[in-house]
């Protein structure tokens, strides 16, 4: 049996307002698809342990919506919701991802499940719609990249 790397790979491409998360999972795509799309299972893994999934609703069809509420021990709630654009079980799901705290920002999230030896490679790509940023920074916006910014943050945090 090959030893498979289960490290979570987070990539912030230099030229797009995109965040990509990749992770190997030790199960076939069909099962991963199920646990990523059914509330019964989402409740049991989506989000940090300290946050309880207090509400979950998924209408898994094109044009259908989903909504998940995370509740922190102090009672504060974080509400996320979105709509499915594209569904190709068990390989690809595309839809919006919105945080209720900033509903004007609709990120588009693409989930891709690829069968690989011994399991599934899961990739979620979140594309942020940074109109605000674009308007504000006509000259330079985000295009130069946030990965670079991340590195710079680390440097700057070390400086201050």
């Amino acid at each position: 049996m090959t030893t498979t790397n289960t490290e979570t790979e987070i990539t912030l491409p230099a030229d797009e307002p995109v965040i990509e998360v990749r992770r190997f999972l030790n199960a076939p795509p069909e099962l991963v698809w199920q646990v990523c799309t059914e509330c019964e299972y989402l409740r049991r893994w989506f989000g940090p342990r300290r946050l309880e999934v207090s509400e979950c609703a998924v209408d898994l069809r094109v044009g259908g919506t989903w909504r998940i509420v995370h509740r922190a021990p102090d009672g504060s709630e974080f509400v996320f919701y979105g709509e499915f654009f594209e569904l190709d079980a068990p390989h690809r799901r595309v839809g919006t991802f919105v945080w209720e705290g900033a509903p004007e920002h609709q990120a588009v999230e693409t989930l891709v499940l690829e069968a690989v030896e011994g399991g599934t490679m899961m990739t979620t790509t979140t594309r942020h719609d940074s109109l605000e940023s674009r308007d504000m920074h006509v000259a330079n916006g985000m295009e130069e990249g946030i990965i670079d910014s991340m590195e710079r943050i680390a440097e700057l945090v070390a400086l201050v």
């Binding site: 099962l31 049991r44 342990r49």
Partner: peptide
């Protein structure tokens, strides 16, 4: 952000294992 995903994936591993 990293913590969110890493802890989610740990839980997902456990769930997938249990389901299998």
């Amino acid at each position: 952000y990293r913590e969110f995903w890493e802890t989610s994936f740990e839980r997902l591993d456990e769930l997938l294992e249990e389901l299998q």
